[in-house]
Design a protein around this nucleic acid. Structure first.
Lengths: 203, 203, 203, 203
DNA sequence: AGTTAACCGAGACGGTACGTCTTGTCTTCAA
DNA sequence: TTGAAGACAAGACGTACCGTCTCGGTTAACT
């Protein structure tokens, strides 16, 4: 019914959210992140740079982490596309080589800052998982699935867990372990993964 | 004894308490962590509860993270011993099953809080790696080495990278991915690892 | 130009001021004043309680003080009529006894709040004087004038200054000095004023 | 008793109030008041100018009004001394002529701002009365008392109420009534007061 | 009857100051 | 002469209102 649609839509009273402010805030956040890094970024600095009241930020985002997350994900180039070359080995190697650079420098600081925030703020943790962690993992699983269908992995491979191993290794070195994220690391991981082609010989 | 009463009752300030301060601070940190969690813990709260000046804490530890780290590691039960049963499968399974429970509840919160702090504070990051991350990784590598020597892994396996995969998967689920750290997960990881027994068939 | 004339004359086009909103705002202001006092009253609270947009209030009043002033004066009982009994002593005593109760309790709070606002906001100060202070002073001067014409004051008495003394004493105790506004005070003032009957004996 | 002294004194532990900060805050308050007036003065501006944390101000004063009051009264020249020339007429005239200039300009703004604040903040009202209003009134009563003892006022004159009239007139013109505080006003008030020399002829 | 301008409720906006909080340093005094 | 108590400078926090603006919609006089 038209009535119902009208009712559902009708609670939009008063002035609407300004998309100009929205964009200005995300842009300002990007700039501040670039200049001072995640840790030193403050809501006040974003508001000042965006020419926006602090209230406007708090109205739409619950925390500085949420702003940083959206400013990161709205900046499409951060999202490395998952390759699909027809070869698992090449797909994985390529993915690693494409994604490692983004973990270096300032943008890496932002990502580790968000990971830190997710530990300290359960609300943000959920948002971070929902919009960042889970979708990327699903794409990795899909990449592996393609390899499995081509016979590059054993048919009974638990792809979820395999993806945990792969992403885990990457995040472990990124967040915790003082070891380089470089092509050597990428090659070594891929080498290990590819050995899983053989049929399971043990349960 | 009159002496003891005097010490307990009257102003137990000054040098006399010096030897007790260290323990009192760690104990207070443990209690505060238990009550409010890592995020809400403050140096001031620890000092107040320990009956100690803030300066005394800052004299010995550089940050609240350092206090929490020491209060965690001084609490020996957090350190799960690495098993050595003569079987890689059993060693790994056992290790996972022993270590997963410590990631649940409050002690898990503390650990993830420390991981967060390591992202935000480079000085602490170094300390955290030195006293926690690296030693445990070395023990895992040793565990894998024993398996390799028994022929349970291919001789050319890069154990460093394999350990990154294993620890990575665990930390990934612990810190980032909303998936359970349980026996099923343990078994599935071990299953995948054990397939690496076969000789490398690809570079 | 016809255009200009038209603009200057401002034909009453469009929707007229809603007297319903006008009344609702004054009523809401009275209720909010009653509940939280002048200091804690906000335009937003009045708007919310009146079911009115803030803009509608700002369209018709320049400040919350102006709303409070109108809500006070529209409430006629605050305006004590000036007596005219044929006796200066009785007129003054009666006036004090009638006006003191209105300075007690909530309505007193509002009046002192308006006096405060007049110190902080020059625009409102002018309005407050024009609509409240000056008319009442003129009535007091008229009351004194009647006494003077009856010979109850010396003919060369400066009534303006005498009125300043009388009103001043009342406002001084009301706003600044922690002393009661009661019948004793009224009587003592009147006693002093009545001594001015005698001819000036000093310049 | 030694015990009592000890108890009263003994709770002085930790770092003492910094009189350097105290003075810097009062000085900064004076400067800010001079520059922007009472209304526009903010705690943040005082803190910034004094090179002091806001907390330090809030630790020792409950409100900006309290800071302004102390900065005013610590600035001794604001306190007009009460004259004692041996003549009531000269004393009063002199007092008015000395005190009126201080009500002009910025320092007048401060005083009316404090009077306003006293209407809005009961805690400050009490402090304002205790440290400013009441002592000055007592000095005025003493001035009148000297005149009464010299026979310049009728012996049964209620000096408290007379002081209310005199101070009242001054404050009334200062805060509420748009009329000048000048020598003409001073003379006219004194003329009226001096008529009270005659014995009471009416009760 | 249609046009149009001013009004209306709602509420987002830029802005400002608030009073609180925590950090790491500093000062004082007691034992 | 150490160490508790706690004041200090710094500065971000998240909140509260301010007075303005933008919406979609409603009246009512003027075409």
């Amino acid at each position: 019914m038209a009535e119902q649609e009208k009712n559902q839509e009708s609670f939009a009273r008063g002035r609407r959210r300004s998309s100009q402010s929205h964009q200005a805030i995300l842009q300002a956040a990007r700039e501040v992140l670039e200049q001072v890094g995640y840790q030193a970024m403050t809501i006040e600095a974003i508001a000042a740079r965006a020419g926006v009241g602090k209230k406007t930020i708090y109205r739409w985002w619950p925390s500085k982490a949420a702003v940083a997350l959206e400013s990161l994900t709205s900046h499409t180039e951060v999202y490395v596309p998952f390759p699909d070359t027809g070869s698992l080995e090449r797909d994985l190697t390529l993915y690693f080589e494409l994604s490692f650079p983004g973990l270096q420098g300032k943008s890496g600081t932002v990502l580790s800052g968000l990971a830190a925030e997710a530990q300290l703020d359960p609300v943000f943790a959920h948002e971070f998982q929902r919009t960042f962690i889970v979708p990327r993992k699903q794409e990795l699983v899909a990449l592996l699935q393609r390899g499995l269908q081509r016979g590059e992995l054993a048919p009974d491979t638990n792809l979820e867990v395999l993806a945990d191993l792969i992403y885990g290794a990457k995040w472990y070195r990124f967040l915790l372990h003082p070891a380089p994220l470089d092509d050597v690391f990428a090659r070594e991981i891929v080498k290990l993964i590819l050995r899983l082609r053989s049929e399971a010989s043990r349960t």
